[in-house]
Structure formats: structure tokens, C-alpha cells
């Protein structure tokens, strides 16, 4: 019974781009899948373990760059690059998080932001990966091995869906496992968790590793989809913040939050861009920003909070989904 809402979401997402074959809509669906999955990955370290990361673009960028550089320089399949990128992101996350986990609260959050900015600067001045110019991925014929499809967006959508499914399931199994409870104990009180015999640093590192590896997977997909990357794009604070915003908007700390948040925020940002972005005057981002402010002001408990309230009143489906 409890899983019904989740499977309904999966089914709906999977059917939509086949039902509505408009190319713009399919694009929005792909971006939705990428960002919902990014939110899910981020949620593992921030929503579950309470360690706010403002620097997830670092891992996203590492994923994008690993597969792109391998394909660009050596012709290695992006699928290999994707896995390798996840591995590298996990290693980097441990190296940078180990010292950062000494810090608590905002001090940690600002540290993740600093780390991401430093990594961005390094890529900007790293000539081997073309520095600030960025890399255009060499276009080849449609092929699954090279993860390039020019005729239709559906293959990208299906890969995105597979990653989305995988990541939601990973997040869900963490949430239900002992580790999920440990992480939530650490979130509520570091000291109390420690007193209960949990090793907070070990579990925070583990959560960070999983979170950053999953984030890197999406970096590869994004790079293959856009076919061009540069450091200002994939390592940007905008990406880090978009991940934070959509998860906060949906509701922190449960697996539905990022899905709901992305379902609102991504169409909002993509469609305002499509309809109003052509003028180059920033009207699209202006309206996008204003809508974010309005949503935050009138629904300060997140959309999940709203649904919970309704759910309690009516005894509906949503109340159960957040147990």
C-alpha cells in the first residue's frame, strides 16, 4: 500500500513524454528527471543527514568532465566515463568532506560552497580540459555506446528515467535501512547519536560518498544531452542552488520532496525561458525569481507540508506516504 504513490509517480512520468510528443515538453521532462534525481541525491546528505551542501555542482561537474574528457581525448564510451566519474566524485567527496565534517551547520554549508568554487577555478585554468573555453563533445552518429541520439529525445528520456528510478530506489532503501535511521539521528542531534554508539563521521562520509557518486552520474547524462560543457556551466553556483531550491520547495528529508519540487520548479524555469527568454532582457529569470519568492512566502512549509496538512484533514494518501 505504502508504495502505491511512488509507483504511480514512476508510471506517470514514464508515460507522459509518449502521450505528449511535443519536443519542448520532452525536453522539460528530461530536465525534470535530471534535476529531480539531483535533488534525490542531494537529499541523502542534506535531507537525511542534515549536512547542508551548497556545493553539489562540484560532483555534477566532475561527472560531466570525466566522461566528456575520456570521450573527447580517447574515444572511451560515456557509459564507462559515467561509472568512472561516479567513482572519482566519491573519492573527491571523501577527501574534501573528511576535514569539512569537523564543521557544523552554516559553517559546513559555506565550506561546501568554497570547495565547489575552488574546483571550478581549477577547471577554468586547467588547459588539458580546455579551461574556460569548455569542450564541445564530438558529434557522432546515433549510438547507444556513444550515448548520442540526434533523431529523437526519447532515448535520453529513457536513460534519464533509468537513473531517476535507480536513484529514487537507492534513496528509498537508505531511508528504510538502519543507515537511514542513523543519519536521521545524526541530523537531530550529533551528540545524542554519538552517545547511542553511532559513529557520526563514518555515516556522514558514507552518505556524502553515495550522494556525490549519484550526482556525478547525472553530470554525464547532462553533458551527453547538451553536447557542450564549460566550467561556468557545470560547476556553477546556479546548479548547486537549483538542487537546494527544488528540494527545499518540495520538502526536505523525504523522497517525495525533490520529485514534487522539480515538478514545479523545472517546468517553471524551462517554460519561462522558452516563452520569454528570447529577448535577452532577463524577463524569464525575473518572473522565475518572483514566483519563487511568492511560493516561499505563501507556502513556507514546502509543498509536502501543504499536502500533509490536507492529508491529515482528509485522511488521504499523502499522509501515509510520509510516515
Amino acid at each position: 500500500m505504502k508504495n502505491r504513490a511512488l509507483y504511480l509517480i514512476f508510471a506517470a512520468v514514464l508515460v507522459l513524454p509518449f502521450a505528449i510528443t511535443n519536443v519542448n515538453f520532452q525536453h522539460v521532462m528530461i530536465m525534470f528527471l535530471i534535476f529531480a534525481s539531483l535533488g534525490e541525491s542531494w537529499n541523502i546528505i542534506t535531507g537525511f543527514a542534515g549536512q547542508t551542501s551548497f556545493g553539489h555542482a562540484a560532483f555534477f561537474g566532475i561527472g560531466a568532465y570525466t566522461s566528456t574528457v575520456l570521450f573527447y581525448k580517447f574515444g572511451v564510451s560515456p557509459w564507462v566515463g559515467m561509472l568512472l566519474g561516479a567513482g572519482i566524485a566519491a573519492v573527491v567527496s571523501v577527501i574534501v568532506s573528511y576535514p569539512c565534517f569537523r564543521l557544523r551547520g552554516h559553517y559546513f554549508a559555506i565550506a561546501t560552497l568554497a570547495v565547489a568554487e575552488i574546483i571550478k577555478q581549477l577547471f577554468v585554468s586547467w588547459d588539458y580540459v580546455e579551461g574556460a573555453t569548455g569542450i564541445s563533445i564530438p558529434v557522432v552518429e546515433d549510438s547507444f555506446i556513444a550515448m548520442q541520439f540526434h533523431g529523437s529525445k526519447i532515448p535520453y528520456f529513457l536513460i534519464g528515467f533509468a537513473l531517476f528510478f535507480l536513484i529514487v530506489m537507492v534513496a528509498r532503501s537508505i531511508e528504510k535501512s538502519k543507515m537511514g535511521f542513523y543519519l536521521k539521528a545524526i541530523r537531530e542531534s550529533h551528540e545524542a547519536a554519538e552517545a547511542l554508539g553511532i559513529n557520526p563521521r563514518k555515516y556522514k562520509l558514507l552518505a556524502m560518498m553515495i550522494s556525490s557518486a549519484l550526482t556525478a552520474l547525472l553530470g554525464t547524462l547532462y553533458a551527453q544531452y547538451i553536447l557542450y560543457i564549460d566550467p561556468f556551466m557545470v560547476f556553477s553556483l546556479e546548479i548547486s542552488m537549483k538542487i537546494v531550491l527544488l528540494s527545499v520547495l518540495g520538502g526536505l528529508g523525504n523522497i517525495y520532496g525533490p520529485i514534487i519540487g522539480a515538478a514545479i520548479l523545472i517546468p517553471l524555469s524551462e517554460y519561462t525561458r522558452v516563452f520569454l527568454g528570447g529577448t535577452g532582457k532577463g524577463i524569464d529569470l525575473m518572473i522565475y525569481g518572483a514566483l519563487i519568492v511568492l511560493i516561499a512566502c505563501f507556502e513556507p512549509h514546502g509543498i509536502i507540508g501543504l499536502l500533509k496538512k490536507r492529508g491529515k484533514k482528509r485522511g488521504a494518501l499523502y499522509a501515509k506516504t510520509n510516515a
Binding site: 547542508t52 542552488m241 537546494v244 531550491l245 527545499v248 520547495l249 526536505l252 532577463g282 524577463i283 524569464d284 529569470l285 525575473m286 522565475y288 525569481g289 518572483a290 514566483l291 519563487i292 519568492v293 511560493i295 516561499a296 512566502c297 513556507p300 512549509h301 514546502g302
Partner: peptide
């Protein structure tokens, strides 16, 4: 982080 969300939206709005 809802306050962060609001002020981030505000910064986007003002800048654009």
C-alpha cells in the same frame, strides 16, 4: 532553508 529559498528568488528577481 525556506528563508534561503525566498531570498535567492529575490536576488534573481532584483538582478534580472
Amino acid at each position: 532553508l525556506m528563508a534561503l529559498l525566498a531570498t535567492f528568488g529575490l536576488s534573481l528577481f532584483i538582478r534580472n
